[in-house]
């Protein structure tokens, strides 16, 4: 465990709880893509199946359980409890266009052709693009609530911090996982445009709105 990874994990945790709290406090999930949340739930469920087969540490297991539970809770709030506030007209990204190619790629490019490993690979690839429905929704409406921007910033920062973690681990531990690194780069690149808008607008107290 190094500082980049710890701060990355905490940033990831913060992002999920900022979103949950936003929905819970405002009793509304307006502006949030339910499709991205379903994809994230799928990401955590397929990646953390090793909870049942392999124990690493209390920290590791606890975080996995929290990530699965909190994301499933977000999906529940969006699609059941506060369904009336869900902005489905603007959440029109076709997730099968992500899930099917990513599933195919996981079968073709993986470290080991075993069920658990293929699901892990699927999860890593899917995570890298899971935010696209949310970004698509923002581009359709042309704006995002400030709290949603904070959520996205924390969520994007997490994988960027993991990239620093992988550089650190490569030099100091000889650790290198090509699949995770490539997917992590793709994931971080997808946030670049948003990061720019966040830094130039939201940090200066302005609402995130896209130029018409």
């Amino acid at each position: 465990m190094n500082i980049f990874r710890l701060v990355g994990d905490l940033s990831h945790l913060l992002a999920i709880f900022v979103l949950l709290l936003k929905i819970w406090k405002s009793r509304s999930c307006a502006g949030v893509s339910g499709k991205s949340q379903i994809l994230f739930a799928l990401v955590f469920i397929t990646r953390y199946l090793d909870l049942f087969t392999n124990f690493i540490s209390v920290y590791n297991s606890l975080m996995k359980v929290i990530f699965i539970a909190s994301t499933v809770a977000t999906v529940y709030l969006m699609y059941i409890k506060f369904k009336a506030t869900y902005d489905s007209n603007h959440d029109t990204f076709r997730i099968e266009f992500l899930v099917v190619p990513v599933g195919g790629l996981a079968f073709l490019v993986n470290h080991d052709f075993t069920p658990l490993e293929i699901l892990w690979t699927f999860s890593i690839y899917l995570e890298s693009v899971a935010i696209l429905p949310q970004l698509f929704m923002i581009s359709k409406t042309g704006e995002a609530e400030t709290i949603t921007s904070h959520y996205l910033f924390a969520l994007g920062s997490y994988r960027a911090l993991y990239l620093l973690n992988w550089i650190y681990r490569y030099y100091f531990e000889g650790y290198f996982d090509l699949i995770a690194v490539v997917a992590g780069c793709v994931q971080t690149i997808l946030y670049c445009d948003f990061f720019y808008l966040y830094i130039t607008k939201v940090m200066w107290g302005k609402k995130l709105s896209l130029p018409a």
Partner: peptide, 10 residues
């Protein structure tokens, strides 16, 4: 590549 048993990251 890493095998499932070595995965300590989240």
């Amino acid at each position: 590549g890493l095998k499932t048993k070595d995965k300590d990251e989240l």
